[in-house]
Amino acid sequence: MNHYEPDQLSNISVEALDETRSKIRYRVMSETLYYCPGADAERTDGELRLSFVRCPINKKCSVTHAAERDASGENTIVVDNGGGPIVIVSEHGRRQIHP
C-alpha cells in the first residue's frame, strides 16, 4: 500500500472532540492519478500512528478511517487516540501532529 509522505499533507489541524476522540482536518497534494480515501490507524507504543493512503484513481483502497472531503478539497477523519499523541507515518517520514 502506498502512503503520502508527511510533507505531501498540509493544513493539518487536530481538534479534540472529547477525552478520547479527535477530529483531524488535512489536505493532500493534488494528483491526477491518485486520491486519498482516508487513513489506516494503528495504536503502538502509546501513540496513534496514521498512514494516509495514496490510492490509484482506478482502484478502491480500503482504510480503517474513511475521509470526508468537502467542496474546498479539505478532508476530515475522526480517530480514537485516547487523548494521546497522534503521529503521521509513511515509508520515509514521520511527523507528530498532536500534541
Binding site: M29, S30, Y35, E74
Partner: peptide, 23 residues
C-alpha cells in the same frame, strides 16, 4: 474517473477551481 471530480461524461475535462488549495 478521478474520485475528486464530477464525471461529466462527454463534457470538457477542463475543471475550474480544483487547485485553489495547492502549493
Amino acid at each position: 474517473a478521478h474520485p475528486n471530480t464530477v464525471d461529466n461524461g462527454d463534457d470538457s475535462d477542463i475543471r475550474v477551481g480544483m487547485e485553489a488549495g495547492d502549493k
